[in-house]
């Protein structure tokens, strides 16, 4: 694997100053994407700033109808948190289906959001709940944060510290997993709030995670699978690859949205 200088940062402030003094440094969170990317020589940073042991970046707290999750909280910690299983089971279920058990012991929510893989699961939950991404310098609304495949509003050297997701009245995440990679071929997160329904789709679009606004309008009117049955999803701009073409993914978006609504109840 490509060599890089390793630094362990135990606080966000340390991580920020280590990043600032590195020539071409990147944060190392759980490393479940970054290390394979470096092995494949698709990334060659000069320095790695390991924040996986920064205690202030871990933890799950529920208050005022929202859950705040520290950026270095692992998928397995989210999946197995008993308070969250009661308050927001759809999020635990999503986290418990990312990768495999060993990957979930290392991979983090902050790492997933910073990477913004177009087929990652967490971006769908964060966008569908209208969450707020907090960094060491500011708060960013999910609607402004995701800016296309592997692209986010994060600036050079900015560090995600936590994400706060408003807890929906009902929610469900439907994932049609690509069986070899365990990424979502298409994933749909539906979240129902007193003031309306939000629907976010991952895995489908060449622009990464996005909202399906026609479905949001229809479901806000009537929260039932039939409400989306007659909507048309265009295959334009959808990912086409050997696992499924754009038309196939377009159909999955609709089918999975209906199933998510039924399961959310």
């Amino acid at each position: 694997m490509h060599n890089a200088n390793y630094h362990a940062a135990h606080t966000t402030a340390d991580a920020a100053s280590l990043l600032a003094s590195a020539e071409d440094g990147v944060l190392l969170a759980g490393g479940q994407t970054l290390l394979p990317t470096m092995k494949a020589r698709l990334a060659a940073p000069s320095d790695l700033v390991d924040i996986s042991r920064a205690e202030e970046l871990r933890g799950i707290s529920i208050a005022d109808g929202a859950v705040t999750i520290g950026a270095m909280t692992t998928h397995s910690e989210v999946a197995s948190n008993s308070d969250l299983q009661t308050a927001f089971p759809a999020l635990c279920s999503l986290a418990g289906r990312i990768g495999d058990p060993a990957v979930r012991h290392r991979g983090t929510i902050g790492g997933s959001l910073a990477n913004n893989d177009p087929a990652a699961c967490y971006p769908a939950a964060v966008l569908a709940t209208g969450a707020t991404i907090s960094t060491n310098t500011r708060d960013i609304a999910a609607d402004d944060y995701f800016q296309g495949m592997f692209t986010t509003a994060l600036k050079e050297g900015e560090i995600i510290t936590s994400v706060t997701l408003p807890i929906p009245q009902a929610a469900h995440y439907q994932k049609f997993a690509q069986p070899a990679s365990r990424f979502a071929l298409v994933g749909v997160f539906v979240a129902k709030y007193a003031d309306g329904v939000r629907v976010a789709v991952t895995g489908a679009s060449e622009d990464g995670v996005h909202r399906w606004t026609e479905a949001e309008v229809a479901l806000s009117d009537s929260f039932a699978a039939e409400a989306v049955a007659d909507l048309a999803v265009s295959a334009d701009g959808l990912i086409s690859d050997l696992h499924g073409d754009g038309a196939y993914r377009a159909n999955l978006v609709k089918v999975l949205t209906g199933r998510a609504v039924t399961a959310a109840g």
Partner: peptide
């Protein structure tokens, strides 16, 4: 060596992880 097979699983602080996808320094 690409996080797929699990032949490298060990326990770190009591949790199973893929040791091909973690730095020794971590």
């Amino acid at each position: 060596d690409t996080s797929q097979c699990g032949a490298c699983v060990v326990h770190v602080n009591g949790k199973a992880i893929k040791s091909c996808t973690m730095l020794a320094a971590s």
